[in-house]
Design a protein around this nucleic acid. Structure first.
Lengths: 234, 234
DNA sequence: TAGATTGTTAATCGATTAACAATC
DNA sequence: TAGATTGTTAATCGATTAACAATC
């Protein structure tokens, strides 16, 4: 019987939020932070935070809290933020360009080292200091540079072909912003960032606002992590 | 005791994926689609699909499947894609501009009717046919136009102030792309789209690829919906 | 009829939370 | 010592899945 020994996904998704809270605490000069304070940022009770941190064997001081600096360091380590992650991005449309210069990525160790596009009109363009290359260079370059991650920001109907090129170049992690499901072998890690689908869930909540009541009183659903929704409806 | 009578969030997040699969089936000329086919797109078994669809009282035909056209229509209705959703967007940086012209939004009923920015240099700019307005116009305009949704694409340190303006203007749904947690009253629906946090979870998987084994054999974790990760590791 | 697929139940699995002794 | 907060257990809650009679 297979047994997963890693951290549960919901817990993992909360860690970056705790990390951010710790940075804020450090900036404010706090040396210790309690599980309840960390929990507020992620909309979970302190007990959940303590459980989450227990997966990385973090030890807090009873009566005091967690050492902010130490915990922040452990989280950086656990989340691999200290490691360099080199990525290629395919599709330099509006969304692709936005990601290329997204300020949060570099801080978290992500380097987008090469850009590609199918459109001949875009080839050779210089975007944030990087030249847009033709697709037929992707496979070879990915292999030579040992690139781990591919970011897909092309229209849905082109995404599968792009993913296939990436695989052929030895890429094993794909961050897919195209609104579609990719067919890929099981050893490839795929993360879908599907804005249209997210919009659809928001749309549902708007349409059904007044039906989705609870039977007695206030409800508090919190769906952080995973894209993360805080839905609190009466 | 409060009892939530709505559809579970994980189910809700899968519906847009089923919907997309149905569109593809219709385009291919299929009149009926089975739960297993729909499930493939979302990486869940057919039983899960049938359960999900049971929340919207959908009826399939045993031995045949679901009527693709009818089900697609029901999903559009249930997800509120047929309704117009008017939104204001604050922060016309790279990400903001990308969202303004994101092709998937209009198809799902989202109209971004006004743009705002704090930067005087950006005021008056014309982006996709809409002028960038100063922040001090937001509250009044939101109220006058009865805007439901606010999209935040400003840096983290400006996001809370923007959200407060939106509330003051009567906005009740906030789609927050700033990497931070907003403090808002419980009757406001907040969806966080936190790309840096998502990157951190990917980063973790990359860093721990070879530790996160299962005890016996292959593992298949599927975390669609919510941003959606398909992690399949040995 | 035989084959396929549904809707639903019951079992399983996994995450959240309350509670509390231990400890700073 | 008194107050605060931890780590962990056990109870609860909720989602997934297997199984199968019903039905096209």
């Amino acid at each position: 019987m297979p047994v997963n020994v890693g951290i549960p996904q919901p817990s993992l998704r909360r860690l970056p939020i705790y990390y951010r809270q710790l940075e804020a605490a450090l900036e404010a000069g706090d040396a210790y932070v309690s599980s309840d304070e960390l929990g507020k940022a992620a909309n979970v009770p302190g007990a959940q935070v303590r459980k989450d941190l227990s997966y990385l064997a973090e030890e807090g001081r009873p009566g005091v809290g967690y050492n902010a600096k130490k915990l922040a360091g452990h989280l950086e380590e656990f989340l691999g933020l200290v490691n360099d992650k080199e990525a290629m991005l395919v599709g330099v449309g509006n969304l692709g360009r936005a990601l290329i210069s997204y300020p949060g990525f570099e801080r978290y160790g992500l380097q987008i080292v090469a850009l590609f596009d199918q459109d001949p009109a875009k080839l050779g363009l210089n975007i944030a200091g990087r030249k847009v290359l033709p697709m037929n260079k992707l496979e070879d370059l990915a292999r030579r540079l040992h690139i781990q991650m591919g970011i897909i920001t092309v229209p849905a109907d082109a995404a599968q072909a792009v993913a296939d090129h990436m695989l052929a170049g030895g890429i094993t992690v794909i961050w897919n912003f195209a609104p579609c499901t990719l067919s890929l072998p099981d050893n490839i890690l795929v993360k879908n960032e599907d804005l249209a689908a997210e919009l659809a869930t928001l749309s549902h909540h708007i349409a059904h606002r007044h039906e989705e009541h609870t039977k007695e009183t206030l409800e508090a659903v919190s769906l952080r992590g995973d894209g993360s929704t805080q839905v609190r409806e009466e």
